[in-house]
Design a protein around this nucleic acid. Structure first.
Lengths: 386, 386
DNA sequence: AACGGCGATGTTACCGGTAATATCGGGAAG
DNA sequence: CTTCCCGATATTACCGGTAACATCGCCGTT
């Protein structure tokens, strides 16, 4: 009954093709109703219909006990060559594939990690997810992803409960909002679980953003003669946003520059556009945006107000999206090592899961990339009341 | 031994917090070495250490058989109110959570879908993935994602084998390259599996891109006086790229416009930039790009060649990325319903898995969004040898 | 020749659920 | 007052692996 019949046949849909139809009764060569396995050898003994072969089927075919098969699969050394050969042959003949579900029931190891996000289509989270997934794959794990539509607590709890039931060995959250953090505090996962976030001030991971990246960016602006900076911040309930805001405030203070204003956006280009379009006065010569996309929106708004970048105003982003090099003008930004973050997060989780020593957390890079959106500060601030 | 010790304690890392430490032996109240469950009531009977409660534990605590608990959990009606109450109490007291692994071993239903991609950080695949994951969640499924680093066959096979072993009920591929398609033809998943791709010409799903979207885009250009179009194509081994190329050729022919050239990129802004920067002659007044990002790169290259968009050349994209409205100038493009595609792909897979009737495939939208990157054609083609 | 030891393999138990079948007690029918 | 039936619940089997223990045959020892 869970056995599914051949699905809607003859859908001429190109590019969407069915792989592996179930076996169907055909002209058997043996007794009675012994069906044929799909385009393969006839199944042996007890192995019925299209169901996958188990170690018992293999054992029966090879004339050994199932435990011998299990040992073989685990790479156990002490098996006589002839026995080994029989098992190998049966394995191949039946096209055996281990049932991970059964295995994880006894071993308690599912090799699955839960990943949770509500912003998978944003570049940051999806980049982190991708690299975490790649790292996971290399370690023999897969990521179970569950997305949230909303940020409300009930929805998060529901999603987390779902993940918790799926027998994962660890949980990562990729959207480091406060709602997510609180949800993680509320829920008892019984397994290692944490919110992947930008290395923050009191972190073990040296926050290169705060110690080097942002100072380098601000120093770059200072060198160009800028003294007054407008900061387009990310949403305050994101820890990465607060982190970046703190970093620029510290860096500006250290270098004697003034942050004349902080406008909170939502990471989107639209919010960056709105921030600048709605501005009455712009009493700064440089705009630093907490991410590249808001910088993109800001640059459009500036040009619509008749201000040229970087002649009248310099603009920078943070992240270095692949596209940022092709904005008009190409964006000066801080390259964040998102892929490294994803890998590090998975590595950290793995070390907690497998109990191995948590190896040295790698310093996350934040490298200044200078392009054409920054230039010498103009004599006077562009929109200041003259 | 699979029981993991409390992981590296005292890591002051903020934002990364540990949820749910394992129970540890404490001052028991009963006989011998009965440990205490983490921050909760003392475990009952056989339930040892920090291990999660099973239905047997619950049954024992409630004084009924495990089967009664199972029936209760399945919402079976014929249970006496007092029995029901006992079970409910025990359930709550032990903080019971079902073990999906065990359940799926017997039922054969894992409620897990495999998702495969090597471009998770690209907007298209990640958007599709996100919406598919959301649809999956609503249906009680999770997506197991496995990423590929490369596009080579061996790597794909390995990843597919990994997915196949994880007992998924269906498989989706989100990068519709030929390599992926071929891999899907090679592998026998034993479950429904297909490559999510743009609805293509011979498809059941009406290809709105070909029938309405692209004609609308070309008509828009024709109305502005353009007669010669340069097309920036996607990589030829992507079915969506071929699809888009065919669509514009057909639309141009139908409206009597000429496609003067087709340059193949790799979807990236860098490739769009290179395509235009390397061009000797530009004997077209409009550039249509197979995606928005290549259009972005193309616009930068144009401006570096001293050509203004749209005064000298009109540019369009396809996709309507959220950022496209904030390019300089804002990009005229075809809005593709990627989220709808993801939902539809999951719905299709679900209907195959659950054997329900494949409901009417929804027409996928491709809507023309006119912005400022297109304008009246100039008198003469900009870079033509004069 | 009897025996301890050990390598190779077989048998049984168990993981935590669900499905199928068995049992038990009480009310209606004869 | 029995008998039968049926609803409520308990028992047992099973899913496909792994772990622990049992068995068997052959070897070298004394």
């Amino acid at each position: 009954m869970t056995e599914q019949a051949a699905p809607s046949a003859g859908s001429g849909s190109r590019g969407e093709r069915e792989a592996g139809a179930r076996g169907e009764p055909g002209a058997g060569d043996g007794a009675g109703d012994e069906p044929i396995a799909p385009e393969r050898k006839v199944r042996h003994g007890a192995a019925a219909a299209g169901k996958p072969a188990t170690i018992y089927d293999v054992a029966h075919a090879a004339g050994v006990s199932h435990q011998t098969v299990s040992r073989f699969l685990k790479g156990f050394a002490g098996i006589r060559p002839e026995t080994r050969a029989k098992v190998e042959r049966a394995l191949a003949e039946l096209d055996y594939r281990p049932n991970l579900t059964a295995r994880s029931l006894t071993t308690g190891r599912s090799h699955r990690i839960g990943a949770l996000t509500h912003d998978i289509d944003k570049y940051g989270p999806s980049k982190i997810l991708g690299s975490a997934a790649a790292a996971a794959r290399d370690a023999g794990y897969v990521l179970d992803i569950v997305t949230l539509d909303t940020t409300d607590a009930a929805s998060i709890d529901e999603a987390l409960a779902m993940i918790a039931e799926h027998d994962v060995e660890g949980v990562l959250a990729l959207s480091s909002t406060d709602e997510m953090t609180h949800a993680f505090e509320r829920i008892d996962f019984r397994v290692p679980a944490f919110v992947v976030t930008e290395p923050d001030e009191p972190s073990r991971v040296r926050s290169q953003l705060a110690t080097e990246g942002m100072p380098a960016l601000v120093a770059h602006l200072a060198r160009l003669g800028h003294r007054r900076i407008l900061f387009l911040a990310g949403p305050h309930h994101w820890s990465a946003a607060r982190n970046r805001t703190r970093a620029i405030e510290a860096a500006a203070e250290a270098l004697g520059l003034e942050v004349t204003g902080i406008i909170e956006g939502d990471w989107s280009a639209a919010s960056g556009y709105a921030a600048i379009a709605d501005l009455e006065d712009l009493d700064a010569t440089a705009i630093v945006s907490a991410n590249d996309q808001m910088a993109l929106g800001a640059m459009l708004a500036l040009s619509e107000r008749g201000l040229a970048v970087p002649r009248d105003v310099s603009v920078t982003g943070i992240d270095d999206l692949p596209d940022a090099a092709f904005y008009t003008p190409p964006l000066t930004t801080l390259r964040m090592d998102l892929a490294g973050r994803g890998r590090a997060a998975f590595a950290e989780l793995l070390s907690r899961i497998e109990g191995s020593a948590a190896h040295e957390p790698p310093a996350v890079q934040a490298e200044l990339i200078v392009r054409q959106s920054t230039g010498p500060a103009p004599r006077r601030t562009p929109l200041d009341s003259q």
